[in-house]
Design a protein around this nucleic acid. Sequence first.
DNA 1: TACTACTTTTAGAACGTTTTGAACGATTAT
DNA 2: ATAATCGTTCAAAACGTTCTAAAAGTAGTA
Lengths: 164, 164
Amino acid sequence: MNSKLETAQDKFIESIGKLCDSFGLNRFIAQLYAVLYLSDKPLSLDEIVERLKVSKGNVSINIRELENWNAVRSVWVKGSRKDYYEANLDVKGVILRKVRQAIQRRMGETSDMIDSFKNIIKVPDENWTDEEKKLAKTYEERLKKIEELKSLASTALLLADKLV
Amino acid sequence: MNSKLETAQDKFIESIGKLCDSFGLNRFIAQLYAVLYLSDKPLSLDEIVERLKVSKGNVSINIRELENWNAVRSVWVKGSRKDYYEANLDVKGVILRKVRQAIQRRMGETSDMIDSFKNIIKVPDENWTDEEKKLAKTYEERLKKIEELKSLASTALLLADKLV
DNA sequence: TACTACTTTTAGAACGTTTTGAACGATTAT
DNA sequence: ATAATCGTTCAAAACGTTCTAAAAGTAGTA
């Protein structure tokens, strides 16, 4: 391949990797997607290995992860026994789905935690000292703020849907 | 402290840690903030060490990070030589500032990368084969989509500002 | 059945990141 | 002056995560 094109592509791949990494996604998976995203034809596992200079095992595992995300799908190439993969070009959709999933899951976990917290501090317990009762009040008030934040996240998700 | 209250608090701290961790933020820093957020009075470094059972050095370094984020500020307690810290209770503000910062920084980096990519593929180079020219076209079109994504992120930031 | 071409699994190596704890300097109390 | 109290720093250790390479597995083909 033209080496200028290849260098440019490398920069892209590296950059996307960093980007996703800094948002808590697996760097390599993002790079895998980037390679496929820039390709004008489906690539085989071997071609990806060659392009990224990593082990086959690594690609194999992480390609499957991308398939789960609906970010990549395998295509059949006539006359070849290999599996070929191509990127889902709807980047927006892929990302949004991923983000929404992450947010929803975390919000759920947080809700559960907050609920059980509330249960504890609401139980009237005559053994509590005044100090403790005051503390419980503080908790209650601060938790309320976190819940507001949660509903903000929900609103954001709704808006995001409209945007895409 | 009432052990039920303490257990509840521990769950909260753990949960917030996981939450932030899964979004690419440092888990411990988040836990540090959680401790201060739930406290009804400023805490000293020693008290935090005691509460979280971690080393002094660790708390020292990461408290400073939180101060940089405006998530925590130190307060002077009369009659004590120690530094005391209290959380900025405006969680929404803290988070939004952090998120906006992260997004803006990453968007900038991505723009730079895309620009240089575009420069390379736009230079008319007579040595390119038809194959390469076709590839360059593909790149151009796919990059455009990434840029749309970027502008989506900008819009999201604007909306976020209105929400808070 | 054996052969070939491929993918997946796996145990451990390599890696980056986080945490520790001892040493240090600076400040205040005795 | 000396001791005690604090916060900070930094090299080394601990840790979790990702990656590799080789073995095992699967499916087509003769």
